[in-house]
Design a protein around this nucleic acid. Sequence first.
DNA 1: CGGGAGTTTGATCAGGATCAAGGCGAGTGG
DNA 2: CCACTCGCCTTGATCCTGATCAAACTCCCG
Lengths: 245, 245
Amino acid sequence: MSTHAAIAAHANRAVPGYLVSALAISPASGLTAIPPRNPADPLASLGHTKVYEREVTVFSEGDAAGSVFRVMSGMVRLYKMLPDGRRQIIGFLQAGDMMGLAFAAQYLYTAETVTATTIQRIPRLELDALMDAQPAFARKLLSATTSELMAAQDQMVLLGRKTAAEKVATFLLRLSNRKAVAGGDERTIDLPMGRSDIADHLGLTTETVSRTLTKLKSSRLIRILVGGKLELLDHDALADLAGGF
Amino acid sequence: MSTHAAIAAHANRAVPGYLVSALAISPASGLTAIPPRNPADPLASLGHTKVYEREVTVFSEGDAAGSVFRVMSGMVRLYKMLPDGRRQIIGFLQAGDMMGLAFAAQYLYTAETVTATTIQRIPRLELDALMDAQPAFARKLLSATTSELMAAQDQMVLLGRKTAAEKVATFLLRLSNRKAVAGGDERTIDLPMGRSDIADHLGLTTETVSRTLTKLKSSRLIRILVGGKLELLDHDALADLAGGF
DNA sequence: CGGGAGTTTGATCAGGATCAAGGCGAGTGG
DNA sequence: CCACTCGCCTTGATCCTGATCAAACTCCCG
């Protein structure tokens, strides 16, 4: 399922990017001698790639920001915290998504792996050099960032105006959508993150997330599978419930 | 107060941009013969500028998107609606802010004036041409859009995790911050929008906004003035209440 | 197999929404 | 110029969704 073609399709999807822009991952990255300029993935030759364990911190809000990162596989959560510990998860990143892309001296959110994750770290200086060398790449970054902004605006609608059931349904459909475009079974989605992660992403509590999922299960809209997987039994009914993205 | 210097300072502020990026407005724009390329404001010579009355629509969600817009003076609200009419105001735009900047065929939100507003309309083709001609300008747009994204993430924290009082306090401080950087009296801010606009921006109802403002007034943290103005009497106490941006 | 974190379920609480009246002020027309 | 009116804002009473507090269950994981 995570074929190169699938990843490329994902990166070029028409659907707004999910978090900080998805950029094509070179099929060849890491497998062959690195070409100085790979037209398909200009980033491929920059920085280096590292495997992180599950549930570890990649960088923290307030850290000096010298690099940007690209998730190659696995899942990362980005979040901001209020002084008293309340947490808002800004988004979940998957293959192709970038993070840390900002013109600020410090990172403005914390990045932690959810699962074991491969991440490419690119020094800002190298990214800047690439933008200078390839204006088209700067445009690509702009396009990806704009997509992120649109996704962020959808999330505002969700957080500000949707009910608990609508929030959960929307969340499930988004995951399914991402996965569908990335190829793979439409109906079965992965939920590697915990209930409290989902809660902190949707502006709810774990209990409410759990109850809502239970209700969806009772209504035969979803089926909860072992190993953090979930099957969407009635996509249309979920879409009705979600009330638009 | 809205001197050229003030606007320039505003556009270059370190604080994250508020909605879709703030770009320098040329001091000379519209006042002198238009130079073909104004280094201070590369946009100045593009498209044309029009004055809109208060409470009119500039473009609607779903309209074919052929232009981007820049607010030169006045105030605009951007919002998205759910099918049943619930509304989420994405943000309020002021001088220097841009809207409609997306790589999509349709506008993804509706833009309406709050007050009488001067708006520059720039065809996308012209913007694209400018980006081709001046790579530095594309970088500037990227920087502005990234700032917007950061602001959107702050708004997610507000919507998902803050209480009504924290939301209102944060909102007032943001307005004050914008104004402060743009020059002008730190303590007195303009609230040209109605209570229901504020409510739809903060994920509350008009009643709750009104009650919360009344409480802030009783606690001597603010004073509500005639003509949609408001005075911040205790900036520090408000900041405590807001609990971080 | 046992321990423990995460999840589910239950009971109660409370913040903010909803429903319902007044009050106030800015425009409008007489 | 003043009074009226309409829309917005404020205030009050009640309701309800989702939070909080509490406990049992399940499934990993060692």
